[in-house]
Amino acid sequence: MNKNQLALRVQEIIAGVEGVAGLYPARSAVLAGIASTLGANETVVAVDTADTGLVIRARIAALTGAPAPRLVRDVAAAVRAELGGLAGDARAGSVGLAGSVGSAGSAGSAESVESVTSVGPVSSVEITVCGFTDVRFS
């Protein structure tokens, strides 16, 4: 699983949490727009590797009926639980990133795929609620 695949999986996990209305680009809407224009496989969730493991960053919209403080904790718990898989230790949930370093998509793609062969734990989850809405949009 490369970073993009993992990011897409995390995106699915977050979008599936009750109370999440949708996700915004984690890095910036401008960069996401540029990537989209160039046809790059831009992911909404940012997945980075640190010495201590994976760092997951996401910006979400919350449904107005879902208390935000509880929602962000639910989102982080879901990410840790899903990535932890059968390990059973949600906090130290780990995921393997395998593959070779290369570029995604066609020539001219703005985004490179950084694939990693090591297996690391989920180091931290950073969730920011950027908006509230009455309806889901993703």
Partner: peptide, 30 residues
């Protein structure tokens, strides 16, 4: 503008949760 980042408490100290000032202002306006 998204404004300042308002912290929300987390279960694990390594996690970081926020909501933007702009999101709350938009809610107040609604």
């Amino acid at each position: 503008r998204s404004g300042r980042s308002i912290p929300l408490s987390s279960e694990y100290p390594e996690d970081a949760f926020f909501e933007t000032e702009g999101s709350l202002l938009a809610l107040i306006r609604r």
